[in-house]
């Protein structure tokens, strides 16, 4: 039980009549790299948004580090409109805001990069350290937190150095090339001192060489920061290389799960996902 850092159980996310995620159950083990794959519109990002508190799930529960973090069941109008399963299995409602979940130790990146685009690279990272800094608005305003601020700046520069971004610290984040923005977003997520890192298509828009660098980088930070990683990714070579476990989503439903070999040989997966991309490549 405590082996799993994240446990997602029977999560259904229904928007009006659209069931974006349908009865999803999955686990992320401590220290593992777990991938979530599936065709466009399968509900992968929606699953991330539920785990990070952006959406309240319609039904189901999520545990983090062996403790219940989220739980919900359809109520009001949704009780009638609900199209998912396991209705009535969850009696309680427990919601958390995204900042509370970040504080528990889940950090994320976004599919459509969401940096603080008008601020500098260094500020982007410093902002992610704000919530854990030992200070209040008075001590920060009157610089009584001088030591803490210095510590934050040092830690932020270290994170930038790992990513080889230190020379860009005073650049405006929004003006940087796409690939660098993606790397900065990971640095920013690491600055929240997470235990679980969610990456939404970290290699999107990267060339094969950049993708390989990113692959190595993900393994490196996982070991260095003692992380567990849960990622959505379309680059199959990246996924197959480093994943301990793969979950395949199609139309909101889990259609397969297992090790990279198991999944890549699963006929349903080949049909729903890999087959499509092979066709597309022809």
């Amino acid at each position: 039980m405590s082996e799993n850092i994240l446990h997602v159980e029977n999560i259904t996310m229904q928007f009006g009549g659209v069931v974006a995620v349908n009865n999803l159950t999955l686990d992320v083990g401590k220290g593992e790299i777990v991938a979530l794959i599936g065709p466009n519109g399968a509900g992968k990002t929606t699953a991330f948004n539920v785990i990070t508190g952006v959406y309240e799930p319609t039904n189901g529960r999520v545990d983090f580090q062996g403790q219940m973090m989220l739980q919900n069941h359809p109520t009001g109008k949704m009780a009638k409109a609900y199209k998912g399963e396991n209705m009535g299995m969850y009696k309680h409602t427990m919601v958390k805001s995204p900042d509370a979940i970040a504080k528990l130790g889940i950090a994320r990146t976004f599919q459509n990069i969401r940096l603080f685009s008008e601020l500098t690279v260094l500020d982007n990272v410093l902002i992610a350290m704000h919530m854990r800094a030992k200070q209040n608005i008075f001590s920060a305003t009157f610089r009584l937190n001088y030591k803490e601020e210095q510590r934050m700046r040092r830690a932020a520069m270290e994170l930038l150095e790992i990513q080889n971004l230190q020379h860009l610290k005073d650049d405006i984040a929004g003006s940087l090339p796409y690939g660098i923005q993606r790397r900065l977003e990971i640095a920013r997520a690491l600055a929240t001192e997470p235990k679980l890192l969610l990456l939404d298509e970290p290699a999107a828009g990267m060339n094969p060489q950049e993708t390989q660098e990113l692959t190595d980088f993900i393994v490196q930070i996982k070991d260095q920061y003692d992380l567990s990683i849960f990622m959505i990714e379309h680059h199959m070579d990246l996924v197959m290389q480093i994943s301990d476990q793969i979950y395949v989503l199609d139309f909101g439903r889990l259609i397969a799960q297992g090790t990279p070999e198991e999944v890549s040989n699963d006929p349903r997966v080949i049909e729903a996902y890999l087959g499509v991309s092979e066709d597309a490549e022809d």
Binding site: R114, E118, A128
Partner: peptide
Amino acid sequence: LINSSYGRAFKAIRDDEIAAEAMGIN
């Protein structure tokens, strides 16, 4: 205040509320 850690948090909210929240800013 604007140039302190709190000022940075304010600017983060201005730039992108969703990202600010995901970085733990209440």
